[in-house]
Design a protein around this nucleic acid. Sequence first.
DNA 1: ATGAAAGCGCTAACAG
DNA 2: CTGTTAGCGCTTTCAT
Lengths: 355, 355
Amino acid sequence: MSDDHATTPAPKRRATLRDVARLAEVHTSTVSRALNRNTRSMVDPETAERVLAVAAYLDYRPNLIARGLKLSRSHSVGVLVPDLLNPVVPPIVQGIEARLVEAGYVVLLGNANHVQAREQAFVDAMRDQQADGLIAFTASDDDEVLRSIIGSGVPVVLVNRTLPDESIPAAVPDDILCGSLVVDHLVKLGHERIAYVAGPQRTSTGSRRRQGFEAAMNRSLKPFNPALLVEAARYTEAEGARCCRELLASGIDFTAVVAANDMLALGCYDALGEAGRACPEDISVVGCNDMPFADRFNPPLTTVNIAHAELGAAAAELLLERIESPLVPPKQVVVSPTLVVRKSSAPPRSPAGGR
Amino acid sequence: MSDDHATTPAPKRRATLRDVARLAEVHTSTVSRALNRNTRSMVDPETAERVLAVAAYLDYRPNLIARGLKLSRSHSVGVLVPDLLNPVVPPIVQGIEARLVEAGYVVLLGNANHVQAREQAFVDAMRDQQADGLIAFTASDDDEVLRSIIGSGVPVVLVNRTLPDESIPAAVPDDILCGSLVVDHLVKLGHERIAYVAGPQRTSTGSRRRQGFEAAMNRSLKPFNPALLVEAARYTEAEGARCCRELLASGIDFTAVVAANDMLALGCYDALGEAGRACPEDISVVGCNDMPFADRFNPPLTTVNIAHAELGAAAAELLLERIESPLVPPKQVVVSPTLVVRKSSAPPRSPAGGR
DNA sequence: ATGAAAGCGCTAACAG
DNA sequence: CTGTTAGCGCTTTCAT
């Protein structure tokens, strides 16, 4: 046995395929074959065993960068979020991450912070890093960045929000249903004059929830008064407050307000408080999303629960399919929300509305 | 001019350095030099300009995988979190991400979900992916995974929590101060019998906040009664409730309870509610972290604000320093918290305690 | 100032 | 079954 080459168990440098090959006295390609499950069968069982042993001894770990270069597959996927501080984002990301890790991928996180330049920079970085795919939360009708990357070859799937183009794979909540669920609840409670704080109409959540709301209103006894709808520019508490103030200032009577999401609902709480109107005694408010801690608000918020982690997992699943088999036609998956009744909704003060 | 090689503007395949070289009629190494700011000066300005133009024309983007292989530097860093759903995590991650992206790095996110095997898998993945460094939220005295990677050559920095070993770079809140801030507040309000719901003592936040609390109590007029301290096994609402119930059941009188974090404080709300004790009228409660929406709880929570995004940015900064200059001795940075008084704390019912 | 050549660590034909 | 060869796309000596 020649002892002249390093017998010390690799003190610093990471072991490479060649190190293993040398010590196992085989060629690197044999090592490669022995180490990869799929090609293991090509190599003599005894040799394979020896190789495995040496690899373990040297604590060999494949260099994924090198493999990626060779295979032009990085096993990484980008996840682009508009704002990490948005309470619905973490649960979705969690769902995505879990599924992706399970499939052997690694998640590259990018926070656009609502600025297009940051979004663009992340998308570029993903291309440069050879990410195998991208999951985006940021879909909006006016979003050039996403449009440009879609169809550029990189598999993209949308999550939470989608675009009008139904051919883009996406995992979204049933927003129409979100809208009608709350109306049905309020109508059952006896409300007739219901105001609506809409989300940004350039987002699918904004427009679809409004559609669902209006459809349900029209289906119910008293049709919807368009003057009772005001659109928020963004999904923020401040915008929710502004919209609700506007509603209050209009002088038109209403006994309940539905907000397109929980942040807007929180803004309604604020505006109501300022105006000295109690919730739910004077006016009921309901939201949508069932964000974390919605049950701890004052009052606990009646809202619509969306299984955000599931949404994320579904998006990851869609992307995986896209990556593995780019040819099969893209799907969209929609997850059903459920109403959760808490303390912010109650029957209107006087059974029937009117002044 | 020979027109026989592809004149169409690269319909599908990404342009490579060789494509640029071919079209610019120079060698690939010249292209490389022209494209990299540092080596640009080595090349004739006119040539450089031509190369740049061709690169732009072909929409050339360097393949970072290839560069990474050559340079053994991936420009990616792993961020290991224990639980993405923990409300303090997203703000910290946001701070990290912002700083890292600014420095040209990309963030690999890993969610351990409190299971060591997942943590280990992520750390392994980071090594395989050749991540340039790691930022970990998970430090705990009994955490083998982190211990093993620290000193294995990969730069690691801890954030939010740290380990007893002060030589490990970390960005943490001033937990001692967190503890004393709340005591001073409560004492000023007139409280004398103050209970403490401690966090897990194997975490630095748990033990240091307790230390800060005890020190401040002993500094104040009436020293602390050890029977009034109970330790939560985890930072969860359920554990907070359990601890508070235990305190209530002990029969020892107290007029305020301080919880080691806001989730535990929320649990105290629950236990107090069950026992029919009003907060803050019967018992004041204060938390720590000032997590998102702590101001919307019922009652709005008096707590200690920690600049989480700053904490994240500081951690990123530390890691960057570690990566660029591994030789300079590791630092720790501690960020100062501030008290935020809301509605969950008030003077005790009867000026002096006692039954 | 630029070209030639080598090589980062890996896998995939293609022999044998 | 295993070794040889080639090359993924890039940077970097080393010549010239």
